[in-house]
């Protein structure tokens, strides 16, 4: 690479990162704006955070969202890990092709289709829509993400350790809990966090599958945004961004300690 072309690349990358981060930085900055006008700086203030904490319907929505996220991520973790084991470890079985398709399709399925089809299922089954239908919908799409993450980890480590444990007389279940599970644990943590943040983030699927009484934070933010940009929503968004960023940093630091950088598998670390 010549000096000139690497200079161009660095410039392009810098602009690219500015593009990625500037909008978020502005949003965070203006959540501390004393002025109600979103683009006019009126001095530093935390009043929008105070307003946010007094907004009961916002807090209720946040609580619903956290509950949906925690429950759906946990179930998705179990189902997704099973699916990953089935795909990587359990060889051929009848209907494997269909299974592979069903596990990977939710990753790229447009949300409007997933949301609509699940709603029509719930209507056909005559289930009351609300908290639990959102949870089921979120489990369904996030288990696919967990499966992908755990699958990558399962492929990357040597099955010989498991086989050795079994050859030495460990029952399969014990070999699984004592050997396999600790090895895939970092991927499972990452998978849970991914499932949780995806659930926290979802507007479209939740809007389709919700019923009376179950309003999630994205639905609340969306309806406020439609009425106009307000500093209070900026404050809510800043809190969410802060929480997610902290979570991701903590998770990636804890995973990094257990996985070593490998040039051939760069994604395993960061």
């Amino acid at each position: 690479m010549t000096a000139r072309s690497s200079g161009t690349i660095i410039l392009a990358a810098t602009l690219g990162f500015a593009f990625l981060y500037l909008p978020i930085a502005l949003l965070v900055l203006y959540s501390f704006n004393a002025s109600r006008l979103v683009t006019v700086w009126g001095g530093f203030s935390t009043k929008w955070y105070a307003a946010m904490l007094e907004n009961q319907s916002l807090l209720d929505a946040a609580w619903v969202t956290i509950r949906v996220g925690a429950v759906s991520a946990t179930v998705a973790l179990v189902l997704g890990t099973m699916a990953a084991l089935a795909l990587v470890r359990y060889g051929r079985f009848r209907g494997r092709g269909l299974f592979v398709g069903m596990v990977s399709a939710p990753l790229v399925m447009p949300e409007v289709i997933t949301g609509l089809s699940l709603l029509l299922l719930f209507v056909a089954l005559e289930w009351a829509r609300g908290y639990w239908t959102i949870v089921i919908a979120h489990i369904t799409f996030s288990m696919a993400y967990v499966a992908v993450v755990v699958q990558a980890r399962l492929i990357s480590f040597d099955t010989a350790i498991e086989e050795a444990a079994q050859d030495l007389g460990a029952p399969p279940l014990r070999a699984f809990f004592e050997i396999t599970l600790p090895l895939i644990a970092p991927a499972m943590i990452a998978g849970w966090l991914l499932a949780f943040t995806l659930s926290l983030d979802d507007l479209v699927i939740a809007s389709f599958t919700t019923g009376p009484g179950a309003t999630t934070l994205p639905m609340k933010i969306y309806s406020s945004v439609r009425l106009g940009v307000t500093p209070e929503i900026n404050a809510v968004c800043t809190v969410l961004i802060g929480a997610v960023t902290m979570g991701v940093i903590i998770a990636s630091l804890s995973i990094k300690r257990e996985t070593y950088p490998d040039r051939r598998r760069p994604g395993m670390v960061s």
Binding site: P23, L27, V38, C237, T245, V248
Partner: peptide, 21 residues
């Protein structure tokens, strides 16, 4: 790499909303 992945974790809705301002 972490800086590329981070926005992917941050709410999609919020990132779209940020552009309105």
């Amino acid at each position: 790499l972490f800086l590329v992945i981070l926005p992917f974790w941050t709410s999609f809705l919020i990132r779209v909303y940020a552009w309105i301002g």
